[in-house]
Simulated scan of single mutants.
Amino acid sequence: MPTDFKLSCVLFDLDGTLVDTAPDLIASLNRALAAHGLAAVAPEAIRPFISYGGGAMVRESVGADTDPELQAAILKTMLDHYQSNIAEYTVFFSGMAETLRIIEARGLKWGVVTNKRKRFTDPLMAALKLTARAACIVSGDTTANSKPHPEPMLEACRQAGVRPQECVYIGDAIHDIAAGKNARMKTLAALYGYLKPGDTPETWGADALIASPEQIPTWIESLTCR
């Protein structure tokens, strides 16, 4: 890492990085499957696909060859239920609340860039009392393109009033790391997130691999010791 790197803003993916939304998303999926006469799925089987959206969760649950109209109906039921139960079980990953406090105490900005749609992102951030604390909130439909395109990352910088070269982006999927790199940001791969079987985050090109949120302040501290 260049010794002249100046960190101004820490950007997070939402699901699987900043907060653990899996319990609410999987509960909504199983509610939808039951409503359409299908068997529930085990959380551990679906959790790795959360970072790829509700459609991916449904496909993994019922099989990609299932009637597309049925898949669409299940997805609608799932998302409607999720919107009405946005933060019933969602919590910060262990250590993340303290990590945010440390970031703020250092005078750094932080924000969220997610592929989650605004209809879910905004009420979730509000329910967690994070809206006023975040310097930027960019959803999957905030810009014309979503991750891995750099446009959402650049929009986050515009909202936060920072330059991409002064940011680090933390995410748990290959498209997160690609998005950060495409915007010329530093990147950290969150190994504690929703990794899929066969994922090889060590090959994604991130600047570091983070096994837990507690390692984020350590990485930030290392910048001042160079």
Rank of each mutant, 00 (worst) to 15 (best):
K129L: 06
A134P: 08
L79G: 11
D13K: 07
I137L: 15
P197Q: 06
G198Q: 14
N30D: 02
L195D: 00
G107D: 03
D176E: 07
A208M: 07
L223D: 15
P217G: 08
A27L: 07
W204G: 00
A34P: 00
T200N: 06
P2M: 14
A73C: 11
I50S: 10
T114V: 04
C136Q: 12
K181H: 04
L29M: 14
M96P: 14
A144R: 09
K118T: 07
A173W: 02
Y52I: 06
T77N: 10
I137W: 15
V168E: 08
K6N: 05
P213I: 13
T203G: 03
T66Y: 00
T131L: 11
F120Y: 08
M185C: 11
S8A: 05
E221Y: 07
V168M: 10
V162E: 05
H81R: 11
G161S: 12
M185Y: 06
R47Y: 01
T17F: 01
G95D: 13
K118D: 09
P217S: 07
A72M: 02
D20F: 00
D207I: 03
N182Y: 00
A32L: 07
I86E: 01
L191S: 08
T203D: 13
A134S: 12
L14I: 02
T21Y: 01
A134M: 07
E166D: 15
F12A: 09
T187D: 09
D13P: 08
S28V: 12
P43F: 12
L18I: 01
S139N: 15
Y194H: 15
L100Q: 09
S51P: 03
L14R: 03
H36K: 10
R47Q: 06
I210M: 11
S222C: 15
G107Q: 00
G16S: 10
E202Q: 10
A126E: 14
R133C: 15
A27I: 06
T121P: 03
S222L: 13
T121I: 03
H175L: 11
A132E: 14
